[in-house]
Structures are given as structure tokens and as C-alpha cells.
Amino acid sequence: MHIEKKLEALGLTLPPPPPRGGLYKSCKLFGTNLAYVSGCGCIIDGPVAGKLGIDFTLEEGQEHAKNAMLNVLSVLKAEIGDLDRVKSCVKILVFVASADDFYDQPAVANGATKLLGELFGEEIGIPSRSAVGMNVLPGNLPVEIEAMFELCD
């Protein structure tokens, strides 16, 4: 099944690629068939601001991570034209704006990783990853994700 059909089966659609927040490329192709997607926030349907452990629950954080990954995939698709070109989801880095006593950043990141697994399957879709707590993120976002993908020829 094609990735777009899998998104549809999950009741999801890719949002338009989010606007850049500065002077950088949203997606950079490099090496042999590698794509790096700059950090994408979790805004899809209107403003989202705050921290995990204060303003948002773990479950809400997982939803924010899923939304950030949808933005990542939207940026990737805009660059490469077709998400079926993804050979491997190599690595993601998940930034979580966190209260001082919130320690579940990896569980928040599961919202993004689960989506990749559902779309691409475990072998291709489950990346290596890091999940880190931050004092603040740009625009007071709760979650931001950057990613690296290997592409088919």
C-alpha cells in the first residue's frame, strides 16, 4: 500500500509544509540519497504553546509529536515528490519543552515513532532517535522534530 493510502486509512492527511522560521533550507538532500529535514513544530490546526508536565499531558505530547512528524513528512514530500521513495527512516531528534520535573521525553517521542512505523512498517519506519527535554522551544512550541531519511534511487 502506498504511504498516501496508509495516511488516508489512518484518517490522516499531510498538512501543507510549514513555513520556514528563519534563514535555512527546510529539507536538504545530501550524500547518496539522503535527506535531512530541519526541525518542524507541531502546529497543524492552530496555535499550540506550552510545556509538557505543565500545560500538556503525556498523551497530548504524543499527539503533538505525531503532528510534528506529519509536518516533517510534508516537508519531505514537497522536496522529493513522493513518500514512497523513502527507503529508510534513519534518525529523528525530538525536542520536548518540559517542566523541570517531566522525565517522559522518550514516551512523547513515541507519538512520532509510532506514526512512522504505521506508515512505513517496522523495518523501514522505526528510526534511531534521541528525545531531549528543553527549557523552551521557538514560539513556545511543546514539541519539535528533525529527521533524516534514506531515499530509493
Rank of each mutant, 00 (worst) to 15 (best):
K25Q: 13
V75P: 00
K87C: 07
K87W: 11
T32Y: 13
S98Q: 12
G81P: 01
P142F: 09
A68E: 05
D84K: 03
P17G: 09
G111F: 13
F30Y: 15
A9G: 00
T57D: 06
L23D: 15
A147S: 13
D55P: 00
D101W: 07
E146I: 02
A97F: 12
L14D: 08
L116C: 14
L93F: 06
L12V: 02
L52G: 02
C89N: 14
F30D: 05
N67E: 13
A9N: 04
K114F: 12
H64N: 04
G81E: 11
E122D: 13
N33D: 15
G133A: 15
I126P: 00
E79Q: 14
E122Y: 13
A9T: 04
S74V: 11
V94S: 13
L115A: 07
F120L: 09
L10Q: 07
E4I: 01
R20N: 10
E79D: 10
F120A: 03
L116Y: 08
L93W: 05
V72S: 04
V72M: 02
N135M: 11
P16C: 08
V136S: 08
E60C: 01
S38T: 14
F30R: 09
V72N: 14
K5M: 06
N140G: 02
T113H: 01
A68V: 05
P142K: 08
A35Y: 08
A9W: 01
F120E: 03
L34I: 02
N140F: 12
N110K: 07
G125E: 10
L93M: 06
L34G: 01
I80Y: 09
A131I: 11
D100N: 06
L34T: 02
P15W: 14
G133P: 03
R129W: 15
V48H: 03
P127Q: 10
E60Y: 06
P16A: 15
S88P: 00
N33P: 00
G39H: 03
E118S: 07
P15H: 14
A35N: 07
V75F: 07
N140H: 10
E8H: 03
G133S: 15
L14T: 03
A112E: 06
V86A: 08
L7Y: 05
L151T: 11
M148T: 15
T32Q: 12
G46N: 07
I43H: 04
A147C: 02
G53C: 05
E146W: 08
E146H: 01
F56R: 01
V37C: 04
P127K: 07
I92P: 00
L137K: 12
V132P: 00
L141D: 05
A97S: 15
L52K: 02
F120N: 01
P127A: 07
F95H: 14
G31T: 12
G133N: 11
G117F: 10
L10I: 05
G117P: 00
E63C: 00
V132G: 04
S74H: 13
P142V: 07
P19D: 14
E118C: 04
D55G: 00
Y36N: 04
K28A: 12
N33E: 13
V48P: 00
P106K: 07
D104S: 14
K5N: 13
